[in-house]
Design a protein around this nucleic acid. Structure first.
Length: 688
DNA sequence: AGCACGCCGACT
DNA sequence: GTCGGCGTGCTC
């Protein structure tokens, strides 16, 4: 008889191994749920978490003892485990895989003594925060005051409301976050702030530090995102977990930060697609934040100028409380939106102009007045493709079903999907003709054409290429802030969040493509991007009245642009929701996407067809609609063929009931389809 | 996924 | 004679 106790331990065994859940081990002492342990798994030793619930050992398996207990780190809370349980089950991944993948990687490399040292050092460093004077707070606008008053009512003890803060750009959403955080902090609770991108963390962190970092009772702020060094990430994670940090600011991974006294979760720019993880457990940090708020009894604030249609509909239904900031701080006007009908431009034969006289004129006036302009084009490089006029050759990528982009800066052809790069050929590789020309345009070419059209103007470009080296983005942004740039060319990178005080003109040069995309969310994304870009203009109230947005379009009568001109998100959302409703698309249905990757499209298709056949035998499947497999938007990347199959369900519940047994079968199915390299299930996919 | 074992070609 | 290719099988 063995008197050692069986315990459930979540270990990092991937879902495809068939050991997705928790495994049972023996322990000599009682271990609280949430305790970190090291345990043998096969021939190696892995980190695991003692999981809530009773062990349920299979009689045929001889249990092994836990190898070590990491006592230095306090156990993760039952609520944290419940969040992970939910995420794993909802997104159909292994429990241990999810639980361990959201811990700082460094944690899994250290032993108990090393962790004890880190914890001790951290506590010691934390022991002295210096007090200072009360920081200045701006006066609230009437909108802000009303929103905060309502938030206060909703956050009565025991309540955990979800609030959709719909505030147009420049209306002071951040100040609402700060005041809400102030209340939570004053009540002794922790605050979690999520932002879509790492780039946006420093400026928001600065705002929070300015408000809470000093004063009579200074608070501690830490960040959590993939840009931190492993040691920093562990340190900040421990600070949150030990309750030393009062404020945690981070990207989507931070939704799993252990926070013993969580009282408020802010999701800034809640509509942003970056909140959806695109590999592993494909979770939505925004949706998990809402779930976590309920679990922890914490208030959740979802903020956006252009909310996701999912959140907007929930607000319409009364499931979320909508609070509106309808006016800009200082009552500045939103930029007037001027549509330039590109159909009316005089056409020179063989020449397609990218810059209308109207736009060039508007830019020239800004340069003259010493004001700044932002010209926005969501395509980097010089031109998306090179073309041979003689034989029709185009610069396609040999490994992908995509063009290689011409980058004039270093005279290369680059595939933006697999990275394949070559020098630009002197002559057409097919026919030897010397007349090969760029087709279409990207930011590099736009920069060049603007410099030609505006002699003497200082034109700069910010995109993924110009900011590759460390610190380059910061340097370029500070040049813009210092006024060393007249016209800034950029991709969506510059449309988000930045507080450029001197910009009075924003231009979208060629936004039409998204209007006719096969992706049903493309209009929503375009509208959000244009509203966000428009918000870059006139942030200084003194200049707001002169601020303007120019949109060049071949479809000036499109309803999306009409709504944009009126800055009317509600009209746009209502019309989109009507279309979604008629088409049976989310949020009126629930989707899952099964993807398969193989050397041949045929192998991927056969796997998906077999998967569909299996699904049809699962109870509840009759309520689902399983579409035939189709190639991915870019079917081949790095010589791998990608197919996908959409599953549509009237309710979340039915979808979940079918998916669960399905993924178990898919693991088996893959072993019968040798050609298939990988498969993945995406619940609530963003792009289809 | 790791990490083993296992059975066939070119080298210190 | 070994080192090593990656096929397939297991992990409480």
């Amino acid at each position: 008889m063995d008197d050692r106790l069986p315990v459930r331990v979540a270990v990092d065994a991937p879902q495809h191994s068939g050991l997705g859940g928790a495994l049972d081990y023996l322990s000599e002492r009682t271990l609280s749920p949430g305790t970190l342990v090291r345990a043998p798994l096969g021939r190696r030793e892995v980190t695991g978490i003692v999981w809530p619930g009773d062990a349920d050992p299979e009689p045929s398996v001889a249990l092994k003892p836990v190898a070590a207990v990491l006592d230095a780190v306090p156990p993760l809370s039952a609520r944290w485990c419940e969040l992970v349980d939910f995420a794993a089950s909802y997104y159909q991944r292994g429990l241990g895989e999810v639980a361990l993948s959201v811990l700082p990687p460094e944690l899994r490399k250290l032993d108990d003594d090393q962790l004890a040292q880190r914890v001790a050092r951290l506590r010691k460093a934390w022991a002295v925060p210096p007090a200072g004077p009360v920081p200045a707070r701006p006066e609230l606008t009437p909108d802000q005051a009303a929103a905060l008053a309502r938030l206060g009512e909703l956050s009565a003890p025991g309540q955990a409301p979800v609030v959709l803060l719909h505030g147009l750009t420049g209306s002071g959403k951040t100040e609402v976050y700060l005041r809400a955080a102030e209340d939570a902090l004053a009540a002794g609770r922790q605050v979690l702030v999520l932002v879509p991108e790492i780039n946006l963390t420093p400026q928001l962190e600065a705002r929070f530090a300015e408000r809470f970092g000093a004063g009579p009772a200074p608070k501690r702020i830490v960040s959590l995102h993939s840009g931190l060094t492993p040691a920093q990430r562990l340190k900040n994670w421990l600070a949150a977990h030990l309750g030393l940090a009062d404020l945690v600011l981070g990207t989507r991974m931070a939704v799993f930060a252990p926070l013993p006294r969580l009282g408020l979760i802010v999701v800034d720019e809640e509509h942003d697609p970056s909140y959806k993880q695109q590999e592993g457990a494909r979770y939505s940090a925004r949706d998990l934040a809402v779930y976590r708020g309920k679990l922890e009894g914490a208030c959740v604030v979802l903020g956006s100028a252009t909310p996701s249609l999912e959140s907007w509909q929930r607000a319409e239904q009364g499931r979320y409380e909508r609070l509106t900031l309808a006016h800009r701080v200082g009552n500045g006007a939103l930029p007037a939106v001027r549509l330039v009908d590109m159909n009316l431009l005089p056409k020179a034969p063989g020449v397609t102009t990218l810059l209308s006289p109207q736009l060039v004129g508007a830019l020239a006036r800004r340069v003259e007045r010493g004001e700044q302009s932002l010209v926005f084009l969501n395509r980097r490089g010089y031109a998306p493709v090179l073309h041979c006029g003689a034989c029709g050759w185009k610069s396609d990528c040999p490994h992908c079903s995509a063009w290689r982009v011409f980058h004039k800066v270093d005279r290369t052809l680059r595939c933006h999907h697999c990275g394949f790069t070559q020098a630009v050929p002197r002559a057409c590789p097919d026919c030897g003709n010397l007349d090969i020309a760029p087709l279409g345009r990207g930011t590099e070419r736009l920069e060049e054409q603007l410099a030609e059209a505006l002699p003497g103007a200082r034109v700069a470009r910010i995109d993924a290429d110009s900011t590759k080296t460390k610190g380059a983005l910061e340097a370029q942004l500070s040049a813009v802030h210092a006024g060393d740039v007249d016209v800034l060319v950029g991709t969506q990178m510059v449309a988000k969040g930045h507080d450029f005080r001197r910009i009075t003109l924003v231009a979208a040069v060629s936004p039409d493509n998204a209007l006719f995309s096969s992706d049903f969310r493309a209009p929503e994304r375009l509208f959000a991007l244009l509203m966000q870009a428009a918000g870059r203009a006139g942030r200084d109230a003194a200049q707001a009245d002169r601020s303007e947005m120019v949109v060049q379009t071949w479809h000036p009568t499109h309803p999306l642009y009409a709504a944009l001109q009126r800055h009317d998100f509600k009209a746009f959302a209502d019309s989109q929701l009507k279309e979604r409703s008629m088409a049976g698309l989310p949020p009126f249905s629930h989707l899952a996407l099964l993807r398969a990757e193989a050397r041949t499209a045929q192998a991927a298709r056969e796997f998906l067809q077999a998967a569909a056949t299996l699904a049809e035998q699962i109870p509840g499947a009759r309520e689902l609609l399983i579409y035939p497999p189709v190639p991915h938007h870019i079917a081949r990347v790095a010589n791998v063929e990608r197919m996908q199959m959409l599953v549509e369900s009237p309710t979340r519940g039915t979808l979940q009931r079918v998916l669960r047994p399905w993924v178990d079968e898919l693991t088996r199915l893959k072993s019968q389809h040798k050609g298939v390299m990988r498969w993945a299930l995406d619940v609530d996919p963003l792009a289809i």
